[in-house]
Write a protein that binds this DNA or RNA. Structure first.
Lengths: 125, 125
DNA sequence: GTATCTGCAAAACTTTTGCTTATTT
DNA sequence: AAATAAGCAAAAGTTTTGCAGATAC
């Protein structure tokens, strides 16, 4: 496993822009081909540096950089698309509880809360 | 908004097979073109009859029928893909709490717990 | 009868892959 | 030097769309 310029760029690029990205934009931003990004993403996901999120309403894969960051989940505004990160330990404790109740060994989770952000609620008049 | 044979088939078909489906399979099963399924899904999602889930590890859109069913979320086995539905009110209460804390008007959520199902844990020897 | 819907085939996109050239070690 | 990685371009998939013919109302 080599440490190439492209991999360095992908890592660096995935940190900026709030850590959230879609493949095409990232590739363009850091000047690496999409093929290379697509080939490397699974490795980085495997390595725990990046994880796949579910943020895009359209079908595109969205990812985020999680290297050295606290785990968090997302609040997403269904109107304007704003994404707010949150972390709430009690939720995770209950998730663990549910998993155990069903005999599952919990490894990860994905959670998105969908609603209207404060700004869009006002415009909702 | 007309009630066509195709729409009836899509609704009927979305109930069977455990209520979970991907578009191509549903279309084939009920004998309706994929184009028609794709055109109708958004309407049915809007109507609250169907919702988009996140079950497929590959990029395909997965859906489930939720008409008259209790709300639930999913435990997914990362090895064999088994899906178990669960509902745990306390989790939802906390989600509402988190949303309010950020000023969001919560409308929906998606949650998947990923882990190893009991059977795959045994084989994990 | 007319407005709405369906199916087909083409188009638009996203993601994967084969192969050649470049680069890391 | 050898083995791995990148880029390009083609391929494989999924989802969307234009249009002609069919259908519900």
């Amino acid at each position: 496993m080599r440490f190439t310029r492209e991999r360095a760029e992908i890592l660096r690029g995935s940190c900026s822009a709030g850590g959230h990205f879609v493949v095409e934009a990232l590739a363009k931003r850091v000047g690496v081909s999409v093929a290379t990004v697509y080939r490397n993403l699974p490795l980085m996901v495997e390595a725990g540096i990046i994880r796949r999120t579910v943020d895009t309403p359209d079908g595109r894969g969205a990812y985020e950089h999680v290297w050295g960051r606290e785990h968090h989940d997302h609040l997403v505004c269904v109107r304007c698309g704003e994404v707010v990160e949150f972390h709430f330990t009690a939720l995770e404790v209950l998730q663990e509880h549910v998993a155990q109740e069903h005999g599952f060994a919990l490894m990860d989770h994905r959670m998105e809360l969908l609603g209207l952000c404060p700004r869009c609620q006002e415009e909702e008049t």
